[in-house]
Design a binder for these strands. Structure first.
Length: 561
RNA sequence: UGGGGUGUAGCCAAGCGGUAAGGCACCGGGUUUUGGUCCCGGGAUGCGCAGGUUCAAAUCCUGCCACCUCAGCCA
């Protein structure tokens, strides 16, 4: 039952295919995933990881993991570990190619020297404000820095002394000498190095000058022999600079930058700033809150890495900005879990049912298949007795049209057990709330017996009252009520205040005793659930995603009439 | 008003001159001891708009329009 994954073509693969035909890189494909260790990875990063590692895999090439750690004031080792964990969890392997831009600081510095020697870079003493002023605007060209035409010797000397720490932070920068009148602001003598006395998480206090992304990134790619440097659309404007740098340092087969549209997912936010806000202001319980679109959140929620990769494959790769509906992600987990998750019965909101004609102390051990989609998953035993619990939603005193479940005088099947009939409804005298059902069962209808002439429309899940285990279940909904929370001036105005509902009197079948955190199940007729790490003697489940619910749809349609 | 991009069904997305793939969502129907799964069927006479080239255009050309993006010593 192995499904042949058909990976479809996209514009990046088309480019690579062409390179393969023309032999541009000698048939070599080498990509990289270059996160800055300044935050947690989210589903948008998963897309990038999937593209970079996935393409390398598909073309029998390599993909490096490289931390773009050129700005120590924003970065931290904490993030390095979480990023590594997430990439691994997604199922990708950088083997021995774990790199850091900071590993290249010395070589990068030498590239800076080379650029100066070639007359392509200079030390500028304009302060930050002046640099900005001289840059011009979108519609007006910039002005050349008065320091632009220093001699190579003077530049060399100054750059060296910048490194030695002779100058104050921010007093000087190394700039590329390109074109102050370029329509592309990135080409107006971009800053390559800044003086910034801060302790780097890997190089300590060895350096007081740090390279800028625009300088370090293309050259790091070149150093690693990257062939295809795949990044997101906002770097499109940087490509001329990327090419300028990479061709100025004499590497063979300079890497090519290719940009794709980053992922936007409906009903959530993706920016690090906003995610951090949700965490810091207590809207969620942390970066790995199961409602977060972070990899760690999705992991805790119970998403499988396979489903996330499948999602990344199926959304495609293009250059058009788009927003994928989160329903598609949910579809991908359902599809994966349908095949893999063992089925189990759990009653989230219990309603007591006494089967009056069933012997008081009799217990039958019934056989229940674990997964009708995968018979090889076998079956388990389930106790059945006189008192069971069913879902409150599965009984209605006054059933509307098309309601196939239990109602006074009606019959339903208890999955894997018997057909029962509702004989009497017991209510709380003061509140009128239904608190118990008195039913009878038909001994001839035990699961597996002939059902000729005994069709019932509804089948319910249940648990045996005396055997059931108590559990907490956390029901999650989308974090935001709007498809695009960013549409509002303040995205927080669209926070879904009901994104978490905790049910603390759930009853699950005894088979679940000792279920390990991380294990996933389908609660029959309800959805897919995952044992949360909080689980101990007290079972705690996260709802990963509900099952599709046609009845809910019918009710909604009826309500709309 | 400068530079760089993008516009194919409600949402993604193939297509690269020969007459609109696929998926999600949605709507029908069938199977079903999960109102799940699975199976079958349905939607663009149309590809941002307007012209042009061609026997033939989503694909080529021209002109418009809309949206995204760039003025960190962030990445």
């Amino acid at each position: 039952m192995s499904t042949t994954k058909t990976t479809s073509n996209n514009f990046i693969k088309n480019i690579i295919n062409e390179h393969m035909e023309t032999g541009k890189y000698g048939g070599r494909i080498h990509t990289r995933f270059p996160p800055e260790p300044n935050g947690y990875l989210h589903i948008g990063h998963a897309k990038s990881i999937y593209i970079n590692f996935g393409i390398a895999e598909e073309y029998k090439g390599l993909c490096n993991l490289r931390f773009d750690d050129t700005n120590p004031i924003k970065e931290d080792v904490e993030f390095i570990e979480s990023i590594k964990e997430d990439v691994k969890w997604l199922g990708f392997d950088w083997e021995d190619r774990l790199y850091y831009a900071s590993d290249y600081f010395e070589r990068l510095y030498q590239f800076g020297v080379q650029l100066i020697e070639a007359g392509k870079a200079y030390v500028c003493e304009l302060n930050q404000e002046k640099v900005k002023e001289y840059r011009g605007t979108l519609t007006e060209p910039g002005k050349e820095s008065p320091y632009r035409n220093r001699s190579v010797e003077e530049n060399l000397d100054l750059f060296e002394r910048m490194r030695q720490g002779e100058f104050a932070d921010g007093s000087k920068v190394l700039r590329a000498k390109i074109d102050m009148s370029s329509g592309n602001l990135n080409m107006r003598d971009p800053v390559l190095y800044r003086i910034q006395r801060s302790t780097h998480h890997r190089t300590g206090d060895k350096w007081c000058i740090y390279p800028m992304y625009d300088f370090a990134h293309p050259l790091s790619d070149a150093i690693e022999g990257i062939t295809h440097s795949i990044c997101t659309l906002e770097f499109e404007d940087h490509r001329p600079l990327y090419e300028w740098l990479v061709s100025s340092v004499n590497v063979e087969g300079p890497p090519q930058q290719i940009e794709f549209a980053r992922l936007n997912l409906s009903h959530t936010v993706m920016s690090k700033r906003k995610l951090r806000q949700l965490v810091e202001e207590g809207y969620v319980d942390g970066w790995n809150d199961p409602r977060m679109p972070t990899i760690s959140g999705l992991r805790r929620r119970g998403y499988t890495p396979e489903s996330i990769r499948d999602f990344c494959e199926r959304i495609g790769v293009a250059k058009a900005n788009s927003m994928v509906n989160i329903a598609f992600l949910e579809h991908c987990v359902r599809e994966d879990l349908n095949k893999r998750a063992p089925r189990v019965m759990a009653v989230l909101r219990p309603l007591k049912v006494v089967i009056e004609n069933y012997p008081e102390d009799k217990v039958e051990i019934l056989d229940a298949e674990n997964n009708p989609e995968s018979p090889e998953m076998g079956s388990r035993k389930m106790p059945f007795s006189r008192v069971v619990n069913i879902e409150q939603d599965d009984f209605l005193e006054e059933p509307p049209k098309k309601f196939f479940r239990l109602a006074p005088g009606r019959e339903v099947r208890l999955k894997h057990a018997y057909i029962i009939k509702c004989e009497k409804v017991i209510k709380d005298e003061s509140t009128g709330e239904v608190i118990e059902l008195r039913c009878t069962y038909d001994p001839e209808t035990r699961s597996g017996a002939s059902t000729v002439g005994r069709k019932v429309k509804g089948t319910l899940h249940w648990v045996s009252a005396e055997h059931a285990l108590r559990a907490d279940v956390r029901i999650y909904d989308h974090l935001f009520t709007k498809e695009n929370p960013d549409e509002a001036h303040d995205f927080k105005a669209n926070i879904n205040t009901d994104s978490l509902e905790t049910l603390d009197s759930c009853l699950v079948e005894p088979h679940l005793e000792g279920a390990k955190p991380g294990s996933r199940y389908q609660f029959l007729r309800q959805g897919y659930f995952c044992v949360d790490p909080d689980s101990s003697d007290q079972l705690v489940f996260n709802r990963i995603v509900s099952l599709k619910d046609t009845w809910a749809k019918i009710q909604k349609a009826q309500g709309n009439k």
